[in-house]
Design a protein around this nucleic acid. Structure first.
Lengths: 351, 351
DNA sequence: CTGAAAGCGCTTACAG
DNA sequence: CTGAAAGCGCTTACAG
């Protein structure tokens, strides 16, 4: 009797336990085991107990890919973001993953590093894994048509943060306009009248919207926007620090700046110090995002809180809600942001 | 002629294009198309061109799950970490994802929130997606046996950061002992002789190792460790700030502290300020991790850099290297950490 | 170099 | 309530 092939053949020994093994092990059909797996009420309680005991005994692991293939129902969702090293996106991703896991989905992660080219490759690769839906925070310069081509027409997409013109997809965004308006009104209420808008690329939708809110608040106060108070920078700490001088190139110089985001505001504060001006004493600064460092900088930064983790949970809920009903019209969700007043926004003229 | 079922049936219209469609579309067998997909040199160049044109024309998307099922080769790797809101792990995850994507794998994300219970559930869920390997940064209090049970014997695991006793898996860790030794020697070289070790749970392997390095450096300098200079805290800024007073409860008080990590060090600095002591002037502090905030705190924090993104890439490479040869012996990789000297580590006795 | 057939592990009608 | 059969989209020997 040759049992060696069962005992020694490594391939045989490491074969994974399948549903058929369980069925054979307790003398029922594979269909019945499948019904037990999916908690069907059709199965006799005694049969169910026998099958479940066999799951334990054999150490059965459900093969969800095989199930997805047959049932045409995917249990994964793709999440495509710029970069996890940005705490705003890291928190967002944590919220997405938390909500997807709670709903029984797994998160397929992809990072674009803010490159539209890489975004195409990442999307193509993720689509081969047949996600039920896609949560996409588009890289700067994304082309809606190319993204559409990569994702196809059958997979619902939720676009987060940036806009993707005319894509026809659901969108979840922050109320950039209102946030910048709140920050500007806060500075006006402190007595500032010469207020700059500092940082960001004017071409991006979020920067445009924030500038609109800033301009609207000034206009409502009867103040005109001075062109030399609109300073463009990459949205990074480093570039912002380097551009601080641009605010004081021409008179009248501003006494406060609404910054594109927290990174820019923190950079500006460093740049101000380097020029002998004390942020929060000689010059008022506000940010946008409320990243963890905002509360810890010196001085602490007045900013707008968007709660990215909650936004992640919300994005997951929105994309899951789409799975049943793909024909419906696209939903645009705009989330309010909250002003967090800290010491960086001082009154003008304080010594 | 009833064509309505082809034109109007939504199920028919949204049917995805399969390899069979492509084969039919250019009059070859499915096997040939499969060979084209996998870039086999067996296919005639003209045939290959025809098939590839058909991919374009039909907008074919490869179904990697079906391929994995048949070929028994997975193209995903599971990544299980505590929480992306910790910048150390976010950077690590970014590095893992970068390297996996470059190798053609997709990252399946799971977060434990530092709960061993949740870790079991997350692992079970991820295993159902049949990852080729698992990268696991164990939650505090993980039980190697339970983790083994969830992962099974057939999937290679790379354990990151913490140790998982006797699991028999590959391990990638920081040189905690040497890092703490470097920090302590740096403070000794500045002239300190009363140096505390502040923060962390003495039960965790990383805290134990860092304390060892600290004690070794003191011993090498002929100094004894004073028990009242060993202060335990949760590894958070908040708890660390609250425990600052413990350093000064008994004489002789220390003039410097090697902290368990950056979060603890930043908290201690706040706690020192609250007690009227100026970190970097009256008292020297070092951290561990070099999180982005370390360079920006006031004063900037002397700490040990572990380059978590590079560690992520390394972890991905290690787990991918395991895929072919699962029988081999476990590899323990210890990565050196580098001291970054900043203003928080002052000399003693400066006014 | 290409094709016909079997099969990966599951689910889904359909009988009984 | 349970089982036999077909099939999801692919790959893999095996013929030719």
């Amino acid at each position: 009797m040759d049992r060696s092939k069962f005992v020694n053949d490594p391939a045989a020994r490491r074969r994974k336990i399948t549903l058929a093994d369980v069925a054979a092990g307790c003398g029922v059909s594979r269909a019945t085991v499948s019904l037990v797996l999916r908690r069907s009420p059709l199965v006799n309680a005694a049969t169910r107990a026998r099958v479940e005991a066999e799951f334990q005994r054999l150490g059965y692991v459900y093969n969800r890919s095989a199930a997805s293939l047959r049932s045409r129902r995917s249990s994964s969702v793709a999440l495509v973001i710029n970069d996890l090293s940005n705490p705003f996106f890291a928190e967002f991703a944590a919220g997405v993953d938390e909500a997807l896991a709670a709903a029984g989905y797994v998160t397929l992660l992809g990072s674009t590093g803010e490159s539209a080219e890489r975004q195409q490759a990442v999307l193509a690769s993720l689509m081969e894994h047949d996600p039920a839906g896609v949560i996409l925070s588009p890289a700067e310069g994304s082309d809606a048509r190319r993204v559409c081509q990569a994702v196809g027409a059958h997979t619902p997409v939720l676009v987060f943060n940036r806009e993707l013109a005319a894509s026809g997809w659901d969108h979840l965004g922050l109320d950039n306009r209102d946030g910048a308006r709140q920050a500007t009104e806060h500075l006006l209420a402190l007595g500032h009248t010469r207020i700059a808008f500092f940082g960001g690329h004017a071409g991006s939708s979020s920067c445009r919207q924030r500038r609109e809110g800033y301009a609207a608040a000034l206009a409502a106060a009867g103040l005109a926007v001075q062109p030399q108070w609109l300073v463009e920078t990459a949205p990074t700490r480093l570039e912002a620090a380097g551009q601080a001088g641009a605010l004081f190139a021409r008179d009248p110089a501003p006494t406060a700046a609404v910054c594109y985001n927290d990174a820019v505001a923190l950079g500006l504060m460093l740049g101000l110090l380097a020029r002998g001006r004390r942020p929060g004493v000689d010059f008022a600064v506000t940010g946008f995002d409320d990243i963890p460092e905002a509360a810890l900088s010196v001085p602490p930064l007045t900013t707008l809180a968007a709660d990215p983790r909650a936004r992640g949970r919300q994005a997951a809920a929105l994309v899951l809600a789409r799975l049943g009903q793909r024909e419906a019209i696209a939903v645009q969700t705009i989330v309010p942001v909250q002003l967090r007043v800290r010491a960086s926004s001082c009154a003008p003229g304080r010594p």
